[in-house]
Design a protein around this nucleic acid. Structure first.
Length: 444
RNA sequence: GUGGAUGUAGCUCAGUUGGUUAGAGCAUCGGUUUGUGGUACCGAAGGUCGCGGGUUCGAGCCCCGUUAUCCACCCCA
């Protein structure tokens, strides 16, 4: 047996009471902005069949090819582990939700469904600042219409989220279009033709990653940040030059819809998103003052995904926001304002601290405390047999507004001392009226 | 997966050119005469200096390995 101390698994973290103040604030803001736009919450399982992600995100995506938390199915006794046939902890939620949409029978008639989710995702990556192996995301998915205003509505919800958290109008929406599948097929051909020379022969000026990209996913060549590769991307064919009219018009109308709600989109052809399922609209929400880590939200349209999951062709659009980068950004910006968290902080503190003078008072005090708790008052008492003085110290530290003091004298008279800890005023009251008085004093 | 930095009490950190029983602040617990408070004062507890080798008369300090954490790259949220 090892004597090494137990630790949380790499890339995970414990959310202790104090940490949960912020997390719960993020969750409720998410819930608020989503439901304001009629998105309803859904929760899918934390793990799915591995093939779901392979199919939807694409075998060549980084997420699927090297970042999956997978477990084999049981019962393949003696056989070597076959991870592809097993389960995988969801690395993102869109695939699961599209699956649930189809499985729930919605794809049969493709009605408008607007859903949101908040919950943990898992990716087997090397942890670093703003990146964990288990992290929470807030996201929305809208199925049904292919309308550009729906794209803009989705973006609007994301913007609302950051707005409600205190981000100012420096928030920026960067947009691009991946076109339709036919467009991408043509584009892919054109790109291969354009880059063919660069990858012909033994040696290439491109980075090793790009060599792989050329083989497996040409589009990603355009993503490369290596300077010498960026140079060599100049003059590459533009998707927009081969894009069909419908997709083009969609993109244009998407831009108009964003302007209608007060956002001037920034066209950014480098946004391609790493997952296979995107089509037409792709976007990111940035907050430029954050510098290198300015990307807060990514999303886009996935018109082919539902069909890929076995449903009738049903367009969809959504985004996801990672809590981890959001928390980092908030910290840097000095947000949220203390007032926004006050109610959550208050919830961590008792409102009343009950003090017993002698050992004989404990049961009576415990009974009284329990009564107050049942009435919804946050009430605490000492369980360690501390001296009255020490109990007063605890009461002061606890943040309670009132103290109750019970001694032999009060017990016999069915009374109790009610003390306002801030005003340092106390008076003896009947035990039967203490609840009413506390409700009054606490303004409830 | 590649590279860099770091690892001393629960937390944040000191620890001089390697030299006797490793320190501080915060937090914890107790006390300042036992029915009244977050201050102050006194005291206690708490460390195999990440782990394993090596060099040395002697290592928290030097060397090697290992592990963990953090940071950067890749990619992403």
């Amino acid at each position: 047996m090892s004597s090494a101390p137990f630790r949380n698994a790499r890339g995970t973290r414990d959310l202790l009471p104090q940490d949960l103040v912020l997390v719960r604030h993020l969750e409720r803001v998410a819930q608020k902005v989503a439901s304001a736009a009629s998105y309803r919450e859904v929760r899918t399982p934390m793990f799915e069949e591995t093939r779901l992600f392979q199919r939807s995100l694409g075998e060549t995506s980084d997420v699927v090819s090297k970042e999956m938390f997978s477990v084999p199915k049981r019962g393949t006794e003696g056989a070597e582990l076959n991870l592809a046939d097993g389960y995988t902890f969801r690395p993102e939620n869109t695939a699961s939700i599209a699956r649930a949409y189809v499985q729930g029978g919605f794809a049969a008639s493709a009605p408008l469904q607007k859903w949101f989710y908040v919950g943990p995702m898992f990716r087997y990556e090397r942890p670093q600042k703003g990146r964990e192996r288990q992290f929470s995301q807030f996201g929305v998915e809208a199925f049904g219409p292919q309308s550009p205003t729906l794209d803009a509505e989705v973006v609007g919800v994301a913007l609302q989220f950051f707005h409600a958290l205190g981000f100012d109008d420096q928030l920026q929406v960067r947009v691009n279009s991946m076109g339709d599948p036919e467009d991408r097929a043509i584009w892919s051909e054109e790109l291969r033709k354009f880059f063919a020379d660069q990858f012909a022969g033994e040696s290439t000026e491109r980075c090793p990653d790009c060599v792989v990209r050329f083989e497996r996913n040409v589009f990603r060549l355009l993503d490369c940040k290596v300077p010498r590769c960026v140079e060599r991307n100049e003059g590459a064919p533009d998707l927009f030059s081969v894009m069909g009219d419908d997709a083009k018009r969609h993109h244009q109308e998407f831009g108009q819809a964003l302007r209608a709600i007060g956002f001037e989109p920034v066209e950014d052809r480098s946004i391609v998103r790493g997952l296979d399922y995107y089509s037409r609209t792709v976007f990111e929400v940035h907050y430029p003052p954050l510098g290198a880590r300015s990307a807060l939200c990514g999303g886009g349209r996935y018109d082919g995904l539902v069909e890929e999951m076995g449903g009738r062709p049903t367009p969809g659009v959504g985004f996801s926001i990672g809590f981890t980068p959001t928390e980092l950004a908030l910290k840097e910006l000095g947000l949220p304002h203390a007032a926004d968290l006050q109610d959550l902080e208050d919830g961590l503190m008792p409102q009343v601290y009950a003090i017993g003078i002698g050992e004989e008072d404990r049961l009576e005090l415990f009974r009284l405390v329990t009564e107050l708790r049942q009435a919804g008052i946050r009430c605490e008492l000492d369980h360690r047999g501390k001296s009255p003085k020490a109990q007063f110290q605890e009461a002061a530290k606890s943040g309670a507004r009132f103290a109750l003091v019970l001694g032999a004298e009060e017990r016999e008279a069915k009374q109790i001392v009610l003390k306002d800890l801030a005003a340092k005023e106390e008076r003896k009251v009947g035990q039967d009226e203490v609840l009413t008085l506390l409700h009054q004093g606490l303004g409830e």
